[in-house]
Amino acid sequence: MKQIGIIGGLGPESTVEYYQSIIKKYQKKENSLQVLPELYINSINMYNIFKYISEERMDDLIEYLGNAARKLELLDVDGIIIAANTPHLVFEEVQKQVEVPMLSIVDAAVEAAENQGAENIGLLGTKFTMEQNFFKKPFIEKGKNIYVPDESTQQYLHEKIVSELENGIVNPETKKEFERITREMIEQHKLDTVILGCTELPMILSEKDFSIPFLDTMQVHVDRIVDFMFEESKA
């Protein structure tokens, strides 16, 4: 069975959820609770990621993530994932730092949106994910319409994600505001799905409170990871 290396800590809360979700879906696929996947987690500092992006130090960002990936590669893993959306800003450059394949959360999200038949898509996440093109471009290339909130709303969402959700804090007032913003986007753009493009957002937003399906990037990523672990290794 293939082994996976996880670049985690981006943030800690979602890394724990990744770990538990991979185990549950692995056991479900094996149809047994008496098996466990072999995983390696390299937990790095998410605040370094935010700092490098904010200061537009892309070379430092690539080196920091590349170093984390290379450490996992030394453990002889079969594949590597970054357990967050925002660092995928430099995913292709980090992939070049290692020989083993890396599994992209963006690719998993695009495939899931295709399977849903989604056309008008809302994207929520950190400011970096919403304002940059790395996440939106693959959807646009597939002919999808993808929408993000206005700049001031992006800043509000980002601040709450970093100061509260990344630290495991779910504030009821923040939850109400996130829900209001999401409903306004759905109505304004006639959305048929909303992408939770930050792995902490499921802590505060749930599709059961809305009239359309959501696309949880962490869960579709985990699905892809577990499928990869069961694929036969090439000779």
Rank of each mutant, 00 (worst) to 15 (best):
F230T: 11
N167S: 06
E38A: 00
P12G: 02
V194Q: 06
K51R: 14
D192E: 06
Q3D: 09
E119R: 09
N45I: 09
F50T: 10
Q27F: 10
H88F: 07
V100W: 04
F135L: 03
L75F: 04
V106L: 08
Y19D: 09
I23K: 06
V98S: 05
R183W: 01
I49Q: 05
K28N: 15
R70E: 15
N31H: 12
I7S: 04
L65V: 03
I4F: 09
V16G: 01
L215Y: 04
K127H: 12
E92L: 05
I169T: 03
D78L: 12
M46T: 03
V94C: 05
S14G: 02
E56I: 03
I49E: 10
V162C: 01
I121T: 02
E63C: 01
I105K: 06
A113T: 09
V194H: 03
K208A: 06
E232L: 12
A83Q: 08
E93P: 02
E187L: 07
L196E: 13
G79D: 12
N167F: 15
K25Y: 09
R70F: 04
S21E: 15
Q97K: 15
C198S: 14
D59K: 15
I204G: 07
L201I: 15
E177T: 03
N120D: 14
K127C: 05
E207Y: 07
Y19W: 13
T217N: 04
L124E: 05
K2S: 12
T86H: 10
F228A: 13
K176L: 12
E131C: 04
I81F: 11
E114V: 08
Q34N: 14
I105G: 04
A113P: 00
L89Q: 06
F214P: 04
G197C: 10
M203K: 05
I81M: 08
Y18E: 11
Q155W: 01
N42M: 09
I22S: 08
K127F: 14
V94E: 05
D192P: 01
K51S: 14
G5L: 10
E207D: 15
G66D: 11
M185H: 04
I53F: 02
I41D: 08
K137G: 00
V94L: 06
E119F: 10
L124H: 03
T126K: 02
I6D: 12
E232H: 14
I81Q: 11
N42Y: 15
M218G: 14
S32Y: 12
N48I: 10
E207P: 02
E56K: 15
Q155N: 08
